[in-house]
Structure formats: structure tokens, C-alpha cells
């Protein structure tokens, strides 16, 4: 284990985090509005609409059921058009966004549906319009759940990004495959796995902590 390898691993950590953060953010840009639409068009939602709900639901389900590596490979032509390359971090980000957006849509949909329908009814009775209910009631009331689900989404994206190492994606996954697997270097394999596990733990736990701190539903001591 020489310094050069450690340097590689350092770059790998950076790349994994960079890919996962960008991909998660983009997945929320796409998935969050979809989650809102899914929850709102549900038959108990604010704007029930069977056609939109079922149509979108089917698309989301199809995308979610494609295994990540197959999705990655299938997307190669599109990836080339979008980012001009089919390997490394940019290419991985494209596939990650495709894989994570429908997942985020379902996660956020679940968070929104957890909001107490009585609270929404009270807001309606106050004369609130649908957009106002969304911004002032549904999102704030769902926030603790949205935060803890965001941690799950991020951690899932990290997992996918590691898999992408198998087909030319960058980051820690690529290091584990190239140095660890192909060159039979068990140490590097173990180190990368440990680092990935550590990253996952840190983000999962802090996500839950933040969500808990933000949640006003439990009794908490005042000052």
C-alpha cells in the first residue's frame, strides 16, 4: 500500500461524494415534483385524477424495476448525447438520476401522504388555495419525513454509484474493481468497502438526527 494508492482512494472518495450529491440533487429536482403530483392526484389527494396518477405510477414503476447496471448500459447512447462521454463521473450521474428520480418520487409521495388529512381539511376550511396548502401545510408538515427519506435516497445513490464502477463509472466503486478485483488486491477491496460503509452510516445517521431535531411532534424540553 503506497502513497499513490491512498491518493487514488482520496480522489475516489471525492468523486463518489461529488457524483452522489449532484445525482441526488438532480433526482430531487425531478422526483420531488413527481412525488407531489403522485400524492395530490391520489384518490384521497388534493386534486384526485386517476389517469395522471395511474399513468405516472406506471412509468415510475417501470423505471424502478430496471436493475441499475442494466439501466446504466441501456442509457449509454443517451448518455453520450447528454454529457459527451460514456464513462467516468458525468456518465454515472446520468444513470444515477434516471435510477433515483422515480425512487425519490415514491419516497416523497409517501412523506406527503403521511400528512394528517385533518390538518389539510382545517387549512381548506380557512380558505387556503391548493398552492398555499402545498407550500404552507403539506411540505412543512412532511418536512421531518422528507429529510429522513432524503438520507435514504442519498445512501441508495451512493450504493448505485459504487455499482457503476463495474462499467466504467468513477469513484470508489471503480477503485474497488480496478485495483481490488482485477488486480487481486484484497486490502484495497476491503478499504474501499469500509469507506463506503462509513460514508453510508454517517449520512444515514445524520439524516435521521436532523429529521428528529426538526420534528415538533414529540415532546421536547423548552430551553
Amino acid at each position: 500500500m503506497n502513497a499513490a494508492i491512498w491518493h487514488e482512494i482520496g480522489i475516489g472518495v471525492g468523486e463518489t461524494l461529488y457524483m452522489s450529491v449532484i445525482a441526488t440533487l438532480l433526482s430531487y429536482v425531478i422526483g420531488l415534483p413527481l412525488g407531489i403530483i403522485l400524492a395530490a392526484t391520489d384518490k384521497h389527494g388534493l386534486k384526485p385524477n386517476v389517469i395522471v396518477n395511474k399513468g405516472l405510477g406506471v412509468i415510475v414503476n417501470i423505471l424502478r424495476s430496471i436493475p441499475f447496471l442494466i439501466l446504466f448500459v441501456t442509457l449509454i447512447p443517451l448518455t453520450r448525447v447528454l454529457v459527451g462521454t460514456t464513462i467516468g463521473a458525468p456518465a454515472t450521474i446520468v444513470a444515477l438520476v434516471f435510477a433515483a428520480s422515480p425512487f425519490v418520487a415514491r419516497l416523497t409521495e409517501t412523506s406527503f401522504k403521511e400528512v394528517d388529512s385533518g390538518v389539510i381539511e382545517a387549512a381548506l376550511a380557512c380558505g387556503a388555495s391548493t398552492p398555499k396548502i402545498l407550500i404552507k401545510v403539506v411540505i412543512p408538515e412532511a418536512l421531518p419525513s422528507l429529510i429522513s427519506n432524503a438520507a435514504i435516497a442519498f445512501v441508495t445513490v451512493i450504493g448505485y454509484s459504487a455499482m457503476a464502477g463495474f462499467c466504467g463509472g468513477g469513484g470508489l466503486g471503480a477503485i474497488a474493481i480496478n485495483y481490488g478485483y482485477y488486480r487481486g488486491n484484497t486490502d484495497i477491496m476491503i478499504i474501499t468497502v469500509v469507506i463506503i460503509v462509513a460514508i453510508v452510516q454517517i449520512f444515514q445517521e445524520s439524516g435521521l438526527k436532523i429529521a428528529k431535531l426538526r420534528d415538533r411532534r414529540k415532546k421536547h424540553k423548552n430551553k
Partner: peptide, 20 residues
């Protein structure tokens, strides 16, 4: 929406905003 503002309503389960 205006009409609803001139009719106040309260409920069995209070229905307060839990995060406010």
C-alpha cells in the same frame, strides 16, 4: 375561498399544524 374565510371551523381532533 373568501366565503370559507368568513366561516370558522373547529374539529374533534383539533387539526393543528404540528410543525408550527
Amino acid at each position: 375561498l373568501k366565503l370559507r374565510r368568513s366561516i370558522g371551523m373547529i374539529f374533534q381532533n383539533f387539526n393543528l399544524l404540528s410543525q408550527r
